[in-house]
Design a protein around this nucleic acid. Structure first.
Lengths: 153, 153
DNA sequence: GATCGATAGTTGTAGCATCCAACTAGTTGT
DNA sequence: ACAACTAGTTGGATGCTACAACTATCGATC
């Protein structure tokens, strides 16, 4: 039973993707507004990266989050000012610095993560175990596909 | 086999949501930059709504796309200037106007949609039929959940 | 049918996120 | 030691968004 052509499928998915983007983006923005750690939403992604994936240079961090170096540079400055991230000179290169989350940064990250998790969990509350896992699996695969196919276009 | 608690699941999904937001958001921005219809990315969502869901007032449109009225008002102005959307006075209310896509607007929408579909189809190219359908189904359900549970928080 | 509170939409202002381009300072190869 | 390169910062610009103040209309009530 496959009356749906590839394009029809793509079309329906496209609609859902746009909807998804809008919804998640907005929710993210609201989350940020409410928390008031002095930490911006975009910066949270940087913090998350540093905490979960370890210290790294600005350039590497920018690549990790698919952002411009200049953007990251500014955001990192803010994080440093708030004491959430630490700049360590890179012994191997005087121009570079290694960015690392401070203890405070880790705490803030954890706190935010817990809030986020609570919210997500609430959304998934009625879902059967099977569907949840499937959704994560598919979304994750889609993202990966996007990262590999999308960047080289 | 369920060693994953609800929170672990939420956590993994959260990560994927953030990843998605960044990836798709960026791709969207690039798409916009390349097309040069004079049409902004955000405005495209408005056009899409008017084409697929029919004419409506500014307020209703803003609600449909989960945006502020003022934001929509400006974006609509741009669309009107480009001849993609038409403002019709609302016979039932002198303050309001009914927004509707023009023929040009529909053409532009269709063209953009085709490009988008091609891109999405390419992403899904290697996916088994089953998974594609499942993904759309789950994503769609998640969006609905988000819209109903998310807004009243 | 005049008055006053609600409502539709516009415009002013401000913030964040992002990018590109120009710049500074340190590095590396010849 | 000089030239070509690279890491990061800063300047300038744009897009998207929201909130607040304002204008013009509507509707209910007296």
């Amino acid at each position: 039973m496959s009356d749906a052509t590839d394009l029809e499928i793509a079309d329906r998915l496209g609609v859902q993707l746009i909807r998804f983007l809008k919804l998640v983006g907005k929710a993210g923005a609201q989350c940020q507004a409410s928390h008031e750690d002095g930490i911006e939403r975009a910066s949270y992604a940087l913090l998350a990266c540093l905490v979960t994936a370890g210290p790294r240079r600005t350039t590497a961090l920018a690549e990790s989050v698919h952002s411009d170096t200049s953007t990251v540079s500014r955001q990192v400055s803010a994080l440093v000012q708030h004491g959430l991230v630490e700049r360590r000179p890179d012994p191997a290169d005087g121009r570079a610095c290694i960015l690392a989350a401070t203890a405070t940064g880790e705490r803030v990250y954890e706190r935010n993560r817990r809030v986020r998790n609570g919210y997500v969990a609430e959304l998934l509350a009625d879902w059967p175990e099977q569907d949840r896992k499937q959704f994560i699996e598919l979304l994750s695969r889609f993202n990966t596909q996007f990262e590999t196919k999308g960047d080289q276009r």
